[in-house]
Simulated scan of single mutants.
Amino acid sequence: MKSKIPAILIFSRLIIGLIIILLSLIKVDYYQTIAVVLLTIGLLTDIFDGIIARYLNISTQKLRRLDSTVDQIFFVSVGLATYIQCPEFFKTNAYKIIILGGAEILIYLVSFIKFRKEVATHSIGAKIWTLLLFGTLIQVIFQCQSIILFNLCFWVGLLTRAEIIAILLILKTWTNDVPSVFHSIQLRKGKTIKKSKLFNG
């Protein structure tokens, strides 16, 4: 049963994302509070699925690829639900959101073209950006606006997307959990990189 915990946590994010969309559509009372609580739970499952998998020594490539794909679906679901609640924010910032979305799609295109697999680098920069995205979504959910935090999220998002593309281009073979460009260079040279059960593995 323990070996199934990471997968359960991963798939729970799909359910949480769908619930947030449903709640936004039916416009339940206290939607903002409920959505933020569910978003927080989703983020916690994202943090702990990998940690638990590594401590149980079941952090396989298949599991990491699944984790990465579900992460995308989860945050897109929250974004869609937030759009339903706050369409003006998305209209005002449409071009930046489109650019970010395009950068994310480009990552997957590069990975599929080069390796025939989806990206699962789980870089440190991407983890930092996820926290910024989390904070931005909370602010938009509660206030239907975000200026400083959203702009920071936008620029950090572009930088981290660019780093992931660089990592993919540097790697000779598909590898999951590559913390940074420096580590991808080490791997290209045939060296091993130090992995932590807490952050990558």
Score class of each variant (00 low, 15 high):
residue 189 K to S: 08
residue 69 T to M: 10
residue 148 I to C: 04
residue 76 V to C: 09
residue 195 K to T: 15
residue 15 I to V: 12
residue 171 L to Q: 05
residue 147 I to W: 09
residue 152 L to M: 15
residue 132 L to V: 09
residue 72 Q to M: 13
residue 142 F to A: 12
residue 19 I to T: 03
residue 175 T to I: 08
residue 121 T to R: 00
residue 100 L to K: 05
residue 57 N to F: 14
residue 184 S to Q: 03
residue 118 E to W: 07
residue 137 L to S: 12
residue 21 I to S: 07
residue 27 K to I: 11
residue 50 G to C: 13
residue 159 L to M: 12
residue 106 L to G: 08
residue 53 A to W: 01
residue 63 L to M: 15
residue 187 L to S: 12
residue 59 S to R: 03
residue 4 K to M: 10
residue 75 F to R: 00
residue 160 T to G: 03
residue 105 I to V: 13
residue 55 Y to T: 12
residue 198 L to S: 10
residue 166 A to W: 01
residue 81 A to R: 01
residue 78 V to S: 00
residue 107 I to G: 02
residue 49 D to Q: 06
residue 39 L to C: 03
residue 18 L to Q: 03
residue 157 G to R: 04
residue 155 W to A: 09
residue 44 L to T: 10
residue 23 L to I: 13
residue 61 Q to E: 15
residue 8 I to T: 11
residue 4 K to I: 04
residue 98 I to L: 11
residue 139 Q to C: 08
residue 18 L to R: 00
residue 5 I to S: 06
residue 105 I to L: 06
residue 136 T to C: 15
residue 80 L to M: 05
residue 168 L to I: 01
residue 56 L to E: 14
residue 171 L to H: 02
residue 155 W to K: 06
residue 124 I to D: 01
residue 34 I to D: 07
residue 185 I to Y: 03
residue 185 I to G: 02
residue 64 R to C: 13
residue 118 E to S: 11
residue 162 A to W: 01
residue 56 L to V: 08
residue 199 F to A: 11
residue 11 F to H: 13
residue 7 A to P: 00
residue 37 V to Q: 01
residue 168 L to V: 03
residue 117 K to L: 10
residue 165 I to V: 14
residue 126 A to H: 07
residue 70 V to Y: 02
